[in-house]
Design a protein around this nucleic acid. Structure first.
Lengths: 282, 282
DNA sequence: CTCTTTAATGTAGTAAAATTACATAAAATC
DNA sequence: GATTTTATGTAATTTTACTACATTAAAGAG
């Protein structure tokens, strides 16, 4: 609970002197956070230890700690939460809600991610002869993005959002190839099949999906991304953003593993685009 | 401005020792607010007065005052800041940094977005006879995602990441069509051409790009998304996430504008996928 | 009402934390 | 390579917070 509210609540459990301090604090908390214990004691016409005792009574370590709590109360923190868009929301409102829930979900996803698994995946990706990214629907977008990133690394990389191409590609895979299968639900039959086909052909299968799903069971490694389901809008939103950010992590891990020289190469790739662009005038 | 963001922003104006303090603070701000100046100095391997000077440089009265500001920043929503990935980062570290900068950039993007422009764009999209999404490279991914979303709305929607198809499609557009052109830099020549062609053919052109760029000048409406440039890694990361979230907003605005009955339809679309999936057992 | 007990508050001293002044080292400039 | 400027550290000082103890006020028992 907010410490200011707490003071207001417990006002009648305080002793006479403590109440004096409370009054001063409640009347201008923003002044108090910049005052020393002596200044506050003087303003409330009580002694310094009384202020100190007052702070302890409120479950803080002492006066400085109390001021910290007070400062936080004043900043009226609204942490990002998953607020659902409402029927009558204005553009302002639904924009805020969407951005905030996206952030809240990224936070969630980050906490659920296992970095050692990311590390192992990066290992496999750097050693791969060929990398394939498969997804359907919203996850196709993620696969598409992954291709765009890994393509820059000058490694053989393909992406398919077509079931038949995915199957053919999976059947043609071999030891040393890495197949990344992306599906939030982890229940899309054809993708589960593709994962299983790829494994039968000795490819390493990395799944970007939810843990415990049929797809997860077919994979060598599962990168599970937990997000709150966006059930209200009937289309994938936060899940794919989390997946894309995970792709960023894999790509970044890849470049770090490859060392400095490799990154100079990336710069070249970027620079090669220059002639297709209008010059910057500033 | 939030003091954490400020530290992150001014990171390169700091001296060697000051940067050490900054790193420690950024990596776990919530610990710092409970630490004494001596403890912080020790952790950063520098002397106490250096910490003090660091605090003053950030326009605070001294260390205790600095902690107060820090506490407020932490309460104030995001402790997320844009930290660059470092050469020797572990998987744990770069994952955190990437997720956090993505969140920080989403926050930035949200602030820079003009909701009335979003509202106008939604107006145009709901009234459009046909919607086209064009992008190249990383922005092609965004266009791809947009198609995936708007397709569910049962409106004529196309997406191209092929210059020729984009041109042909632009030339065939007409009054009442909406063309959404996506480019973070806003300087990709062929996309600027496409925007211009579409306008010559009386289509309405919405640009998802940075304000003031050549592309922005060719558009009827510009949805500008400001993010800190991710110059260090030579590939687009945060910018496309912000663009995708903007697409979510447009799609959400679209469904809200269309009313309840329309959303029942969305549910049908989602349900139609069921037979392609394994049943959930729980 | 007075004595005893308990709780509340204050005083003075102590410890800890932050800051200052100065010295030294490192970097930048000539 | 010398000189100036800037950055950093050491040690002393000051400020701030806290502790132990003393005093006072309040509550309860006879």
């Amino acid at each position: 609970m907010n410490i200011l509210e707490k003071i207001a609540n417990e006002l009648d459990t305080f002793s006479k002197s403590e109440r004096k301090v409370a009054e001063v604090i409640l009347s201008s908390p923003s002044t108090v956070i910049h005052a020393s214990i002596a200044a506050l004691a003087k303003q409330a016409n009580i002694s310094e230890p009384t202020v100190n005792r007052f702070c302890r009574r409120l479950d803080t370590k002492g006066y400085p700690d109390f001021k910290l709590h007070l400062a936080q109360s004043l900043a009226n923190g609204t942490p990002y939460v998953n607020r659902h868009v409402d029927e009558n929301d204005s553009a302002e409102e639904y924009t805020s809600k969407i951005f905030e829930s996206t952030m809240a979900n990224l936070e969630l996803a980050r906490k659920s991610l296992d970095t050692s698994t990311i590390n192992r995946s990066v290992d496999l990706l750097t050693q791969a002869n060929k990398i394939s990214f498969f997804g359907l629907g919203a996850s196709a977008v993620v696969a598409h993005d992954a291709q765009n990133k890994f393509f820059r690394f000058n490694v053989p990389v393909v992406y398919f959002d077509d079931i038949l191409m995915q199957r053919m590609s999976a059947i043609n895979s071999r030891q040393g190839d890495v197949v990344v299968v992306i599906s939030h639900t982890g229940r899309t039959k054809s993708l589960v099949d593709v994962a299983s086909l790829a494994r039968e052909n000795d490819a390493t299968v990395i799944g970007i999906t939810t843990a415990g799903t049929p797809l997860a069971k077919e994979c060598n490694i599962v990168l599970s991304v937990d997000v709150a389901e966006d059930t209200d809008l009937y289309m994938p939103m936060a899940s794919r953003i989390a997946q894309l950010t995970l792709i960023d992590c894999l790509a970044t891990g890849f470049t770090l593993r490859r060392g400095t020289k490799f990154r100079d190469n990336l710069k070249k790739v970027k620079d090669s685009l220059r002639s297709s662009r209008f010059e910057r005038k500033d």
